[in-house]
Simulated scan of single mutants.
Amino acid sequence: MSPEGRNERLAAMVKEHLDARADALDDRTAARLRTIRLQAVESAERKMGWFRFPRWIAVGGLATAAVAVLAVSLWMTGPRRESTVATADDIEIVAAQEQMQFYEDIEFYRWLAAQENGG
């Protein structure tokens, strides 16, 4: 037997059982349950949220809008990848390992040039 057939058979058995239990209720309990059900349905119909929609639609719409705003903001502010190397000259400096001593002492050479130009 296929899973659909088993599910239908199970649903039919459950329905029969529930119908039998509902028929076995005394009149007072059945009337009370009917009254409670009607009150619940009327209460749900009266409760309106924003813009004359039922409350669950208004809350669901608000939640959907919040998720959409969050998704768009995360998409628009993605991680920015900034290059650590700014120009082609910087690439040459990093690539030329033999000139690294010069660039490590560049402050000294600037000071020396300032002294020569000043005096």
Rank of each mutant, 00 (worst) to 15 (best):
P3Y: 06
P3F: 08
P3I: 08
E4T: 05
E4W: 03
G5C: 06
G5M: 06
G5H: 05
N7R: 15
E8N: 12
R9E: 12
M13F: 01
V14E: 03
K15D: 07
K15V: 04
L18K: 10
L18V: 12
D19F: 04
A20D: 02
R21L: 11
D23Y: 04
A24S: 09
L25G: 02
D27I: 05
D27H: 02
R28K: 05
R28S: 04
T29D: 10
A30N: 04
A30P: 01
A31G: 03
R32G: 04
R32Q: 06
L33A: 07
L33R: 03
R34D: 07
I36E: 00
I36A: 06
I36L: 08
L38A: 07
A40G: 04
V41H: 04
E42F: 05
E42G: 03
S43T: 05
A44Q: 10
A44L: 10
E45F: 05
K47H: 03
K47C: 03
M48Q: 13
M48E: 14
M48H: 11
G49Y: 03
G49E: 00
G49Q: 00
G49H: 01
G49W: 01
W50H: 08
F51L: 07
F51G: 08
R52T: 06
R52Q: 10
F53W: 14
F53K: 12
P54K: 02
P54A: 05
R55P: 00
G60K: 00
G61M: 00
A63L: 11
A63G: 06
A66V: 12
A66P: 01
A66Q: 13
V67P: 02
V69H: 00
V69W: 00
A71I: 11
A71R: 11
V72E: 09
V72Q: 12
V72C: 12
L74H: 15
W75C: 15
M76Y: 10
M76W: 12
T77C: 05
T77V: 11
T77Q: 13
P79N: 13
R80Y: 08
R81P: 04
R81T: 09
R81M: 10
E82R: 07
S83T: 09
S83R: 13
A86V: 12
T87R: 09
A88R: 07
I91G: 13
E92L: 10
E92C: 13
V94F: 08
V94K: 14
A95I: 07
A96R: 10
Q97H: 11
E98S: 14
E98L: 10
Q99T: 09
F102R: 05
F102G: 01
F102V: 06
Y103E: 03
Y103H: 11
E104P: 01
E104N: 12
D105F: 15
D105N: 15
F108K: 01
F108P: 00
Y109I: 03
R110A: 10
R110I: 09
W111K: 11
W111C: 08
L112M: 14
L112T: 15
A113R: 14
A113H: 14
A114K: 13
N117V: 15
N117I: 15
G118T: 15
G118D: 14
